[in-house]
Amino acid sequence: MKTVGFMIVGVGGQGSLLASRLLGQVLLQTGKEVKVSEVHGMSQRGGSVVTYVKYGDAVYSPIIKEGEADYIISFEKLEAARYAHCLKKDGQIVVNSREIDPMPVIIGAAEYPHDVLDQLTEQSLKVDAIDALSLAEEAGTSKAVNIVLMGRLSKYFDLDVEEWMKAIDTVVAEKFREVNKKAFMLGRNYEE
């Protein structure tokens, strides 16, 4: 099979590391080769963060560049747009519809482009935007935005839901498993 590439993007502190570990784990269970590349350090402090996950028969580079990603999973609207040029033309974006103002917007040096997702659909990209924060809160914690979005991603991806549950059991500490499984299913099953 050809290598499939995922980019998990968002704002530092939103839990992209756990999301990438969950995705890495579920892909590992397919028996294919998996590579995950994470961001640590300075950029984790509220900056724009990106994690790459790739799998296939043979994966070499752990990173994804322009036009190479099959999926972008974004925890925030603006961040989906920031990395959209890395998506293949027929790729899929799964995005949290919430806005988090970056510092240039907070201090009034820039304006938040509220229509940014329309700019992406105008480019004929496939965009699935959901209010992941509300679903995470419904599951029991606002911190589960990451897992809600992984649930949403699972809709676009031919893999048994049981495999995802098994992966959650592997990467999530026991006391947080139930809330995360609930968040995952809410994201997966949400209908507008």
């Binding site: 402090r45 509220g46 900056g47 724009s48 938040y112 940014v116």
Partner: peptide, 10 residues
């Protein structure tokens, strides 16, 4: 796309 940056913050 030309977008506002998101530098790390306290």
């Amino acid at each position: 796309l030309q977008l506002p940056g998101r530098p790390p913050v306290m």
